[in-house]
Structures are given as C-alpha cells and as structure tokens.
Write a protein that binds this DNA or RNA. Sequence first.
DNA 1: CAGTGGTCTAGACCACCCC
DNA 2: GGGTGGTCTAGACCACTGT
Lengths: 244, 244
Amino acid sequence: MQPQSPKYEQIAKEIRKRIREGVYQPKTAIPDQNTLADEFGVSRMTIKKALDGLTMEGLIYTRRGDGTYVLGDIPLKIDTNSPAEEHLGLTAELGHDRVTSKIIKFAIMFLTDELMTHLKLKKNEPVFDIIRLRLVNDKPYVLEHTYMPQKLMTDLNEQVLRHSIYSYLKENLNLKLSGAYRKIHADLSNDFDIQYLNCQAGDPILEVEQVAWLQDGTPFEYSFSRNRYNARSYTVLDISQPTA
Amino acid sequence: MQPQSPKYEQIAKEIRKRIREGVYQPKTAIPDQNTLADEFGVSRMTIKKALDGLTMEGLIYTRRGDGTYVLGDIPLKIDTNSPAEEHLGLTAELGHDRVTSKIIKFAIMFLTDELMTHLKLKKNEPVFDIIRLRLVNDKPYVLEHTYMPQKLMTDLNEQVLRHSIYSYLKENLNLKLSGAYRKIHADLSNDFDIQYLNCQAGDPILEVEQVAWLQDGTPFEYSFSRNRYNARSYTVLDISQPTA
DNA sequence: CAGTGGTCTAGACCACCCC
DNA sequence: GGGTGGTCTAGACCACTGT
C-alpha cells in the first residue's frame, strides 16, 4: 500500500487485478458501487472515479439503472506487440539493453518555415537536427529524424543520443513531456530508408510524424519515425463517450 | 441552455468558447476553481470535472499549487483534414451528400479461424462479407473490406450499403458502437487497390485494421480500410497522465 | 416499484508552488 | 505564509433499468 497514490488509483488497481485473475468474469456484473464503497471503506464518489478510469481503459462498462459489467478481451489487442499508447520513447518501450542507436546526423541548423510553425520558434533560432538509426538486438528497426530547439537542451551530446533522449530529458533536465500529436502516413521508401533500414526499393514505409510538448505547451520535438512496413504497426484504443 | 446535459458539460462548453474567442489567452492563467465555482454558481467539484475534460482535450493544463493555464494551439493539428477521433464512419465524418459507395462484394460466408477470433463467434456462424469502394465527390477514396456477424443485422441490404452502415445500425437497430481497437499498417498495393483506388502498381497503402464493438463488448465489425498513401493520414492526440 | 449508476453539493484536508 | 489544485466524504437528488 503506497499512501502516495490516491485511493481511487489503488482501488482501480485492485479491481484490475480481480478482472485479470477471473474473480470478476467477462460479461458478468461486478458488485454495485455502494457495495464496493463499503468493501473498500471509501465513499461512492471515490469508487466512481476508479471505475471511470477502468472504463476509459476498456476494461468495464456501466449501464445507468442496471450495473457495471466486465468487458471481455479485445481480440486484436491480444496479439499486438507494441502498445504504443505512451510516447516514452523506444528505450522505455522495449527495455534498456536491447536498444542501441547509430548516429547518422547530429547538427545544428536554422529554421525553415515549417519548423518555425511546428516548434513555435522565431526566425533564426537554432535547432538540433538529428538523424538516428535505432537498432533492436542489433537489427535495424526505425529511422528517426528529430528536430529539437537548442535552447531547451544546451548540453545535448553524442553520448546521450546513443542512449535515450527521453531519459536524458527526464533525469538531467527534469523535463517531462505531457502530450503529443501524431500523424501516421504510409510513404514510399527513399534512398535513406533503403540504405539504413535494409529495405528494397519500392517498399512501403510506415511513418509517424509527431509534435511533442512539455506541460506548458512548449513544443520540444518535431520528428519523423520511419519503419519498414512489415516491421511495425501503430495501435489505438478508442472508447466512445456515452454522453455524445 | 439544455438542461439535459450535465452542468460540467455546459461549463466546459463555455470555457472552450472563451478560449476559442481569446477571452482566455494561451499561456495565461484562467480564473481559479473557486472563482469559477462562484461565477457559475456550482461547487468546486463540478468545475474540476469540467476542467478535467478540457485537460484531456489538450486545451488547458493544471499545476497543483499554481493554477490552470491555457495551452496554445497544437501546430500539426491545425492543418489536419480529418480528426478521425470518432469512429462514426465516413458519412458522419465528411457529410451526407458527398459520400457515395460502390458495392463490390456483398455475400455471406462462414467462418475462418481468424474471423472466429476477431468477432468472437463460434464455428459455422455466418458473417456478412462486404467490400465497398467509398467515393467522396465521385472520386475513389477508400476501399473498405468489412465482416459483420449476420445474426446482429438480419435485414442488411444493398440500399443500406450504398449509404451508411453506421446510421443504419443507429437508426434501425438502435445499436450504438462504443469502442474500437485499430492497427494502422503500411502495405503494398494489391490488384484490388490498383483497380479501384486508381493507384499505380507499387504504390504504398495506408491500411486501418479495426475491431469495433457494442457497449457490452460484442464485436460487430472487423474491417480493413485501405487508402492511397497520399490520400489520407491517421491522426492521434495523446495526453499523458500526470499520475504516471 | 426497488435498485442501479450519474451528477452535484458543501465542506474538509492535503500537497504543492511562489513569495 | 497564503493561495492553488487534487482528493475525499456523507449525503442528496435524479435518470434509468429491470420487474
């Protein structure tokens, strides 16, 4: 019991566990909110908040006037490799030791109009222009082209790039990213892709174009991640609001 | 003022409007929760719930001990054509009169193992096997291959397919979809794509593979939507939880 | 009708930020 | 310190579902 996490989180965690272990079975009702409030010794509002979270995760659903039910597994989701819900970077996603990086470009450039818009910078402000090939178990995985404002990270160096930019941000600069907007495209492989990703001319590429920002909305990254088309897919869970 | 929508929704709507109209400016603080509670004549919890929604939409951010601030526009988001957040179908997304459909296949088939898993059906249960070319302003837009359990929609017909399956579900069967899980791939165009989407041999395709389900978790659609690579992109807004 | 979840209140305490 | 947002309570009323 960590007292640092709020009660509704602890309760959500416990209910998640009961669902996972089959105490609460798919398509059946779980105890009503008053019963749960008694069991956990909290008010009903707190139970409600815990259940709201689980609803957003697609684990349960509620019917006003009826009850709260467990939703079965989502078929496509089971055999999916990368959740990709969090944008914590490749290192966090796949584990520390398996991911390495080959630095292809590490330069400072000045602004094009497009970068000015996406990074919300003024003319003549310098940005890092970084191209890295990320390898998983020494096999080429993704080609990442990243632009970051120089003023936010003055002592960025090659050592950092070889590991993880995100952990550098978090541990050295105490910056946390808080949001990202992504556009997923399909594209034709270019010479760069062919050279570094070991793909054939004409192979399709899955490209994720991303703007990521800090809590106050300051953009700190504009990037393109290019994968061979059969190496990765991007997954999304979308739960509708019953209010709409 | 619609009394049918909860107070926190109405308040969220009003604050959204103030942000849009510049009453609350980007990067500046909005009034604190107590002040807003007084202004709207509600309790602070209700204000909090309204603000939580706006936080999830990426409009504001809160700092404990400090205040609530307006987040500026998200650059990439501005010039994006299709929000694609809601999976209400193409007709709802683009307007009623512009979308037409050419029916390429409309058959009933029995289950493959893959469909059995994705639609959670038992052996020998029939499913509709539908292929439609959706056109926007008479131009080929997306090739949709859809599988649906027959038992859920017994009187599905060609007339429905020519318009919108989703509005048929909603209006005739009173079924609402409540969630979807998607995998976005890049793929090589196949003969079908070349024939119907007017693309060249070797063109990449953006494919969205989707399982969609009703409120109780019953899957009612497993589909593949294939777009020409330069015709559409898929967009995602991802807001991190500060709890994590 | 009884029982359920959805909303809302008035107040409380705490963690946190800035001065 | 004083002011902020995050959590939590005990109770209330309502909307809705089943019977």
